[in-house]
Design a binder for these strands. Structure first.
Length: 272
DNA sequence: CTGTTAACCTGAGTGC
DNA sequence: TGCACTCAGGTTAACA
């Protein structure tokens, strides 16, 4: 579930609880995530301390005081919470990091599309990270960048902006919402976007993501932030999950159809 | 190289 | 109730 705002909300929620407190125990209940978890982590992580909690795209990067970095991805259904050690683990609670203050960082992930691994090298050079495009909330991501980069691209603009090599953090919900607000048809060839359309789209992606972060992300099924509170952005979605309902702008029914196996919702009247 | 598709896995919801 | 079926927030690997 987690898109960028959810991951950022999680990072901010858990950071005060996990930084600068020694790790006392690591429990791995299920090591088969997207890639198998290195079981040695339950031996060589206790005694260490996390010194920084960063985010790159939807990857959480937790710096360990021995120079390693934990790379954590929540996949489609993952969530991290701070819990009391007395709270019994549920069926899909795969990982616990226990800290010296007594509380536990608990990873829950029913579909197990997430990833948890450690690297000794610069995380920016890691194979999962090095190909990623710019962060959407930085100045490196802007209308000119979108315009230049999209030239000669025949792929649908929605699929294109969801490609993490183009820009990170734009998942299915925010892709639908941003294209609606920018009045761009999701099936438009990326290379056919005008320069003004690219500027509009970049500005709106920034605004939508930033606003969602301030509201704690989008709660759909099972998302809870690091402090256990749900996000409130879902109530403000204009098109996602609203196929067939009237367009908030022109009242014509919203079209919903799959694009590359992802639900796509748009207004054929407002978006072109 | 670009672009599309299948695959990973479980649970919730729907229709019969 | 139960069963069969569809769909779900992401990403990579394997294709054409």
């Amino acid at each position: 579930m987690p898109e960028l705002p959810e991951v950022e909300t999680t990072r901010r929620g858990i950071a005060p609880h996990i930084l600068h407190h020694p790790i006392t125990a690591v429990t791995l209940r299920h090591t088969q995530l997207r890639w198998p978890i290195d079981k040695a982590l339950s031996r060589n992580l206790p005694g260490r301390t996390l010194v920084r909690a960063d985010r790159r795209g939807k990857y959480l990067l937790l710096a360990v005081d021995d120079g390693r970095t934990l790379i954590w991805h929540l996949g489609m259904s993952g969530s991290l919470r701070i819990v009391e050690p007395t709270e019994p683990p549920g069926k899909h609670d795969h990982i616990d990091l226990r800290f010296a203050h007594g509380r536990v960082l608990r990873y829950h992930d029913p579909r197990r599309f997430g990833a948890f691994l450690a690297t000794a090298d610069d995380p920016a050079q890691h194979a999962l990270i090095c190909h990623l495009g710019p962060e959407p909330l930085t100045d490196d991501f802007n209308g000119e960048y979108l315009y230049e980069r999209s030239r000669k691209r025949s792929t649908a603009v929605k699929s294109w902006i969801m490609d993490s090599r183009v820009v990170v953090g734009v998942g299915n919900i925010y892709a639908n919402e941003s294209l609606f607000l920018a009045k761009i048809h999701p099936l438009r060839a990326a290379g056919k976007l005008t320069r003004p359309a690219c500027h509009r789209l970049a500005d709106i992606i920034k605004a939508v993501l930033a606003r969602s972060i301030t509201q704690g992300g989008t709660t759909l099924r099972d998302f809870v932030g690091g402090d256990g509170k749900p996000g409130y952005f879902a109530q403000q979605l204009n098109v996602y999950g609203r196929g067939g309902e009237p367009c908030p702008v022109c009242s014509k029914p919203l079209t919903e159809k799959p694009l590359s196996q992802r639900t796509t919702v748009y207004c054929t009247h407002c978006q072109n």
